[in-house]
Design a protein around this nucleic acid. Sequence first.
DNA 1: CTAATGCCGACCAACGAGGTCGGAGACCTG
DNA 2: CAGGTCTCCGACCTCGTTGGTCGGCATTAG
Lengths: 175, 175
Amino acid sequence: MLGLSKKSDYALLALSYLATNGESRTVRTKEIAERFAIPAELLAKVMQRLAKMGWLASSPGPSGGYTLAVSDTSITVGDVVRAVDGGSALTHCMQSPEASGCEQWANCTIRGPLGFVNERVQDVLNHIPIRDIRERATPASAESELVKLVARDHSAPAAARRAGASRSRNEGDTP
Amino acid sequence: MLGLSKKSDYALLALSYLATNGESRTVRTKEIAERFAIPAELLAKVMQRLAKMGWLASSPGPSGGYTLAVSDTSITVGDVVRAVDGGSALTHCMQSPEASGCEQWANCTIRGPLGFVNERVQDVLNHIPIRDIRERATPASAESELVKLVARDHSAPAAARRAGASRSRNEGDTP
DNA sequence: CTAATGCCGACCAACGAGGTCGGAGACCTG
DNA sequence: CAGGTCTCCGACCTCGTTGGTCGGCATTAG
């Protein structure tokens, strides 16, 4: 349902927490887990993967824990989702075209276009570093600007026509 | 895993097919199913939902089928995903904050920022009408412009620093 | 009337997500 | 120096959602 998993959620949480509190101090998984009231074991697993990616430095034993090993500007939301969730493509075809044995490859007329949509989403995710996550920025001005841009780029009249499209956020979809 | 479901996939397929081939002709579900080699029953279910949304006009009986009831510019990818998949929020908190009983509401420091990321993705999806899906447009110019915009809006140096972020599309993620 | 189509609900199977368990190494304490 | 404890680490398991299927009913063209 086009939502990022809890693992990615936790990863972003932990990363932002480390970026804020763990500048040079080692932070235990338990600390983060208790701070956000999330299952420690699951978060531990997420931390392991983040460490394996080289983004976290781990030190075992008491007074051990994790430290942010890289700059908070060098990892993006897209990177995290891709690492923790294992791929972040919209469709299955786009991750491994031949591996998944997509029969419709020849028939699929929207493969290219949907891939285009995919790239859009990926780009958005790939250009939001975790620093922005912790900085809690929600500038309305930038948002409206992006809307304009996205609408304009290759289908200005179409998007302009519908105008009030985003209103259908939460209608009647939970039976 | 931040991927749209097959149902959404099929919905987009059918919609684009109807927009192209079914201008005023009624198209049977079977025809689309065979065309794209997808399970007819599942697609039928999807079609029903699309019809119930008022986007498709259905006519029963022999020589019956579906017709696109609205302009191909008045429905966006976001609309379809939301209708077929049932909600398209990135996190569970964002769909029904109090319903899902999110304990971390007070603790969650990234709720706002992640919501911001969520809105970004939603905006992208909400401003790509199905017409663009069928037109298979992949203008590189527009893309680069969007990248600039997304990067610039509130964290120019951060995004500028990493620059080559999108290279990590398909690395080593399928063990 | 018959056949073909959409319509609707219930049902089942499988994959993946979410969560849990026991181990191995490292630090601290006595 | 030795034991205990705390940490990371990897494998394991359960459960829910998703994808997919089946049957029966209403409707309409031929």
